[in-house]
Design a protein around this nucleic acid. Structure first.
Lengths: 134, 134
DNA sequence: TTATATCTACCACGTTTGTGGTATTTGACA
DNA sequence: TGTCAAATACCACAAACGTGGTAGATATAA
């Protein structure tokens, strides 16, 4: 588990995405999930290698054998990885996090539903943790 | 410039942070800026190497010689790098970007000012790009 | 003008990552 | 129960990264 501290590489992230999406999957299923996304040119054996490395790092684990293939499931949550990545970006911004949201809003990536949900979150946050600063 | 497409590594990001913060800096100044931040244990020569790689990648460029040292400045903007990183995280979330904001709000990283600014941004966004088909 | 502290230029090298091949095992079916 | 497709185990290797050393150029100070 401590092997994970250093984070996952780009390709490893892509493979994790497959496990998060499929919940449980064999190496081949993960490969197929990757192949579905545009511009994926990794071979099956490459995915196998990555899967092995992910297991070695403790990011996934074997659940059981199905046929002669292993079924894996994610041990690290998408949430935790996303949190770490976002924190890295915040560090890059010297602690400012607002530019991240600006980017999302400005690039139109937040749907109206998400915006409304966000407003609710903001209201809640303003009420709760409002007395920590100046 | 196309060498940049593949992105920068973690350490390279750290060094870029110095150039963004200082606007213009020599390798030594970048090194010192890095050394200020807690848990930085890179040697000066290491930073020099990274600076060289960043220049080779077109992420920074030489401005002029000051003394016998070169002064560099960033060519890539922090904004563009942040945008790319955030987009990567969005991809990891299969297109959902709201969890990113949730993380920021929940971990209390958005100050009240940022929240208010964000509300304004949301209002504006709701008015402008509101008819793109839901 | 010469010494000396720096800087750059270039090199080295172990590790991680990206990429995929080969050999061997094994489950499933004819 | 033998064969055969498919999975795993293991290997290989180049490129990128992290890390830092050394030699030679050079600006500045004495």
């Amino acid at each position: 588990m401590t092997e994970l501290e250093k984070g996952l590489s780009k390709l490893e992230m892509d493979v994790m995405r497959a496990f998060w999406k499929l919940d449980r999957a064999t190496a081949r299923e993960a490969y197929e999930a990757l192949a579905e996304t545009p511009d994926s040119k990794v071979e099956y054996t490459t995915v196998q290698t990555i899967v092995g490395r992910l297991e070695a790092k403790g990011a996934i684990e074997r659940v059981k054998k199905v046929g002669n293939a292993w079924l894996y499931r994610a041990l690290v949550t998408r949430k935790s990885i996303v949190g770490r990545l976002v924190d890295d970006v915040v560090a890059l911004l010297e602690g400012a996090s607002q530019p991240i949201v600006s980017h999302l809003v400005e690039s139109g990536r937040l749907s109206r539903e998400e915006l409304l949900e966000l407003e609710r979150l903001i209201e809640k946050s303003k009420r709760e943790g409002s007395d920590d600063g100046e």
